[in-house]
Design a protein around this nucleic acid. Structure first.
Lengths: 241, 241
DNA sequence: CGCGGTTTTGATGATTGTCAACGCAGGTGG
DNA sequence: CCACCTGCGTTGACAATCATCAAAACCGCG
């Protein structure tokens, strides 16, 4: 059966053979998790301010964490990728600081917060692994804040594209021939703090400048070097080793 | 000696008698810290990407965490207040995700990351206390991202003012008669993702609408109810109990 | 007194948002 | 099979927000 290019089929899963100790750390946390579950696209797994007793280790699929404002607008905080833990930094308060919605089918396994707390005391590596996850997501949030506050719409968009390329690459998803992003421009707009219409214009410009194309849910980077220059992108904040 | 109102004298320190267990948690972490140090205004305690072996428990004074961009612009991530720990979420990578500069004299004490790791395994409460600090700063970062991405300049500014009011109130700094913010409008601009000039105009509007005045480093909230409406402010994200 | 940083204001321009319209593809139901 | 609907991408015209440039006033400080 031929895959329709309009259909979003990308559901990255992680395989980190090249970074043994990360594998190890994820393994440690996975050992604490329950049986893996499957959620479907459009399903909301967590609502902001919900009381939570577990965090989610993502294995496969696309989702996004976001906040809603009273006027209906939405700010996307992060797109967790396989290997990330959603809610890691909310374990102390037990209240979700953001909602989580699926963009594709998502396979994940819940880790009880209590289990993490227990394990942290008995195995120092668990604490380290957990802090690692927190560190990673926090760095990304900070970079998104820098993006929204101090980069132009063009630089911001280019930056987000490069963030995806790098993060996917880090979990061994090939990106050279283009990679799938199952996002509407409206969704990207809510991540970038822009209107969908302006995102469209920005992508037109990126296309005309031969930097990036985004067509049928597939990103192709044509000139990475100049794209990085436009975005003032440095991958330092994307902790991976 | 009469304090010159032009002089920034605000150096809040925390005293959380009303929230016994928080006091307790800070005490736990403080027990791990070295002797307290004093830093002076304009001093930079940490540079982004620095290797760090300790985090800072702030006792007194004003500082701000920020990121610099290649073009020289600056995004302020957070203003740590007394009782906050700077660098808490960077303990895993050991690399500072932001720089930290003092606005006034600051009294703080360093906590070796190694000591935290050790203590987490022996005393579960330490891990909880530490995760609490991380949770608190992370929630604030997220709210600042929402601010920059999805709120107008007016709402954003109002929101930041209310955040200060609430956080200071949480550490028992009285705010009813106005409170000191030793910030230039340029500094606020870098926190809000605006130009200093626009910040000035926003404050004029806030003043003309009888909501807030900001004069000689002192914030006075004249109509908190309407200010909260303008900012669509809810204090849920400011974890304090 | 003069200097440097900050606040304030006006005039102007660039960036981004809003409104409206159209095309296109997929899905649904007659 | 086709009419219809819906969601998304695309474009144009126009408006609002915010930035830039320039200049003056203010104030603390040396």
């Amino acid at each position: 059966m031929m895959a329709d290019p309009r259909k979003f089929t990308a559901t990255p899963s992680y395989a980190c053979g090249s970074r043994p100790w990360v594998e190890d750390e994820i393994g440690l946390l996975r050992a604490l998790s329950g049986h893996s579950r499957k959620a479907e696209a459009h399903q909301t797994l967590v609502y902001e301010n919900d009381a939570i007793s577990e965090v989610f280790l993502i294995h496969k699929g696309w989702s996004f964490a976001y906040r809603l404002l009273p006027n209906g607008s939405r700010q996307i905080i992060n797109f967790p990728l396989p290997g990330d833990i959603v809610g890691s930094s909310d374990t102390a308060s037990g209240r979700a600081s953001a909602s989580l919605e699926c963009l594709s089918d998502v396979i994940y396994s819940p880790i009880p917060i209590a289990a993490i707390r227990e394990a942290m005391t008995s195995d120092m590596r668990v604490g380290k692994a957990f802090l690692w996850m927190i560190n990673r997501t926090n760095s990304i949030t900070i970079e998104h804040l820098v993006n929204a506050g101090r980069r132009s719409a063009l630089a911001r968009t280019a930056h987000l594209v490069l963030e995806f390329a790098t993060r996917l690459s880090n979990i061994n998803v090939p990106i050279e021939q283009g990679f799938e992003l199952p996002f509407s421009q409206t969704l990207l707009a809510d991540a970038l703090g822009l209107t969908p219409i302006h995102v469209n214009r920005i992508f037109r410009q990126l296309r005309e400048d031969n930097l990036v194309t985004f067509k049928a849910g597939v990103i192709r980077i044509h000139d990475r070097k100049n794209l990085e220059k436009v975005a003032s992108f440095t991958p330092d904040y994307l902790i991976s080793d």
